[in-house]
């Protein structure tokens, strides 16, 4: 059991990573990673959602009839996402404004529903919670790394603090959508190149 829990936890961080192996959740990976602060808030929202959605769905998996499975999944995800949205709006209004529609779009993040379908539907709540959390973390660290480089090269700053001096010419393309494609591709290239497979 402990072995399975550990395996469940480490897989999404490495060989089954949702972003660079399964290529899921790309929409938000591309959209929000031009600024580290927004990215961190976004990945916390996704981690919260995917952890609790998987856990809740796993708890209810025997109560929910198979034919309404997806309706139930969507409802559960939407509930947690709207809670994230409301909490951000009340306590971090500035970041909420900057993230705009992307918080609501966590609902459509394939990682969340994908983990519920592929794992939580057929595993006990404890393991599903670990799987949800680890998938969220697997998503989170990739985004944070991409956001770090995009903000550094695109705005010359990290977390809003200017890091590169006046001599640095901002690479505007890094904070535009093409920059996200380049960074993600380079990330996948580096990771795949390092793995022995």
């Amino acid at each position: 059991m402990a072995g399975k829990a550990l395996k469940t936890f480490t897989a999404p961080l490495g060989k089954d990573n949702p972003v660079f192996v399964q290529i899921l959740g790309i929409c938000s990976t591309l959209a929000v990673t031009n600024n580290l602060k927004n990215t961190v808030v976004m990945v916390l929202g996704v981690m919260f959602t995917t952890t609790l959605s998987s856990f809740t769905f796993s708890l209810l998996r025997k109560v929910i009839p198979g034919r309404i499975r997806m309706i139930a999944e969507t409802l559960i995800i939407a509930t947690f996402v709207i809670i994230v949205d409301i909490v951000l709006r009340a306590f971090m209004p500035e970041i909420w404004q900057q993230l705009g529609p992307y918080v609501g779009l966590i609902i459509t993040n394939c990682i969340v529903m994908g983990r519920m379908e592929a794992f939580a539907a057929s595993n006990p709540p404890g393991l599903s919670l670990i799987d949800g959390l680890a998938s969220g973390m697997g998503y989170a660290y990739v985004l944070v790394i991409i956001a770090f480089f995009r903000e550094l090269l695109g705005s010359g700053s990290v977390w809003g603090f200017p890091l590169l001096g006046d001599w640095w010419t901002n690479w505007a393309i890094m904070i535009m959508p093409p920059g996200a494609f380049f960074m993600l591709a380079i990330f996948i290239w580096v990771v795949k190149g390092r793995s022995k497979e």
Partner: peptide
Amino acid sequence: VVTAVLTAICITLVSAFYLSTQDRV
């Protein structure tokens, strides 16, 4: 029935969060 009950629970939860943060918002 399950859909209706689940929907009711979700709406209640979301409404509770909304109402409790309304003043702050």
